[in-house]
């Protein structure tokens, strides 16, 4: 998993940075972006193989970011994080080409498992 890069996108900075730290401790190389715009910029500079994307963010919505990333980085696997009120957006995201969606708060083991599956599909 050494060469795998994951981009974690969430506007809750404390959440994103802490979760990224935990993923890093598990052997991933995890970067963070705190908005959709930042994520698109980060992907342009240094494309990640897997993007973990929160759906509800200020500015560009998660679905809008998903659309842009699917066009510009068709190989990247995108895992959506949804809240209780946005499950329908998670389903919509799957139809738009997301790899999977998980409900927040997410268990680290199931997130790791989903990232691993995404990586295997990516190879």
């Amino acid at each position: 998993m050494d060469d795998w890069t994951v981009l974690l996108v969430d506007d809750e900075k404390e959440f994103a940075s802490t979760l990224a730290e935990r993923l890093n401790l598990r052997g991933l190389r995890c970067e963070t972006a705190y908005s959709g715009e930042e994520a698109i910029e980060a992907m342009a500079k240094n494309p990640a193989q897997v993007v973990v994307l929160d759906l509800m963010m200020p500015g560009m919505s998660g679905l809008a970011v998903l659309e842009v990333l699917r066009q510009r980085h068709p190989d990247a696997r995108i895992i959506l994080l949804t809240g209780m009120g946005s499950v329908s957006d998670g389903v919509k995201g799957m139809k738009m080409g997301a790899f999977d969606y998980l409900m927040k708060p997410v268990e680290i083991d199931s997130l790791m498992q989903t990232i691993r599956e995404a990586m295997q599909k990516q190879k």
Binding site: E12, E14, F15, T18, L19, E21, R22, L25, K104, P105, I108
Partner: peptide, 10 residues
């Protein structure tokens, strides 16, 4: 709660 959960996990 999600931040607390991740922080406790960390």
């Amino acid at each position: 709660l999600a931040i607390i959960k991740e922080s406790a996990g960390l």
